[in-house]
Simulated scan of single mutants.
Amino acid sequence: MTGMAHLDPMFKGAVSIQAVNEPIMDATLTPGYGEFQKNFVLTVRAVEALLGIGVHAGFPHFSSANFTTVLIEASTTDQFNPEVQDALAAAGPILLQIAAEFNIQPVFNVHAQDGGQREPLTTNFMDINWQFNDPPNPADATLGPQGYDNHLYYSFGGVADPNPDAYLQSICNLRRVENDAAVGNSPLWFGEWALSTQFDASDDFLRDWADAQKLAYSKGQGWIFWSFKIEISPEAGDTARQWSYTEGVKRGYLTRKPAELHNPHVCDDFVE
């Protein structure tokens, strides 16, 4: 994926790769996840080093312009652990195919070819607070640009009591951005959220619920609503009312301009 992001013109807009989406929340059930995080980052950076992009201190310098030579060197150097070496060796045939398809073989230095404009990808993990029971800190794997993701859904329980006041009390006092930053998980964005609830929410509440969540999530590096559009059909019912961004805009719960709010004071009576 790192190779494709830098080599395939169709992926030129890619700026980040997330290692694992929503791992099991109980960290005792994901042994080795911390080592996986470190190896994931090292592999991304190793591929970029092969391409001459964002080479980091401590990484071997690959001087050859022939990709085959560089790949063999990278997958055998003792500066990478066996897991990273294996990943590079497995990715080799795929990267060679990409290079051949886009006529950039044997010269394999994207950084030089595009005038030095390519930037390292941002490696991305769910934030440390996604898991419980002493999870590994993804910040410990950082090497180059890195970001953190959180998904917050109240409708699955365990966040707040199922009533409007409890929901607003909780979201208006959310300190996830600050708590994550205190342990190095910054920048943080909220990659998934919706208007879903555990109770029968009124239209007025959903409008407030949208504003309050946007206020909370905008304290970080932004948010992505899940999902952009959901079908309305006899089979799907009215799921779109709380799960579709386009339907939320149509019904007036969400503002047409994402950065705007219906009521910027929605949290005034709930902030502690």
Rank of each mutant, 00 (worst) to 15 (best):
V15A: 09
F62R: 01
W223S: 05
F190K: 02
D180K: 06
F80P: 03
P258D: 13
P136M: 12
G116W: 07
S244T: 03
G13M: 09
A14G: 00
M126L: 10
Q105R: 04
Y167I: 12
A112M: 10
I24C: 04
F132N: 11
D208C: 10
A240I: 01
R45C: 12
F132M: 11
D161P: 00
A91Q: 07
T76L: 00
N109K: 14
Q97K: 14
F40K: 01
P106W: 02
A74T: 10
E247N: 10
A201N: 06
G92M: 02
I53N: 00
H151T: 05
N173F: 07
E272G: 13
Q131T: 06
I224V: 14
G92S: 00
E231D: 11
M126V: 09
D238E: 15
R251P: 00
Q97R: 14
W226D: 00
A201P: 02
R241A: 07
P60N: 11
Q85T: 04
L206M: 15
A19T: 01
G32I: 13
G147K: 12
N109F: 04
K12I: 12
G191K: 00
L50Q: 06
G92A: 04
S218P: 09
T122E: 11
D140P: 07
G52Q: 13
I98A: 14
V107C: 10
F102Q: 15
N179R: 15
N66P: 06
V110W: 10
T69Y: 07
F225Q: 01
A74S: 12
A166H: 03
V20K: 05
S227C: 02
S233N: 10
I128N: 06
N124E: 15
F102T: 11
R241L: 13
T43C: 05
C172Y: 04
Y33D: 10
L29Q: 13
E272Y: 11
Q79N: 08
P164T: 09
Q85M: 08
L95G: 05
P120V: 09
F80V: 11
A141T: 06
H262I: 09
A216M: 07
N129W: 14
G34T: 04
H56A: 13
K214T: 15
D165I: 02
S75G: 05
T76Q: 07
D140K: 05
A166R: 01
G158T: 10
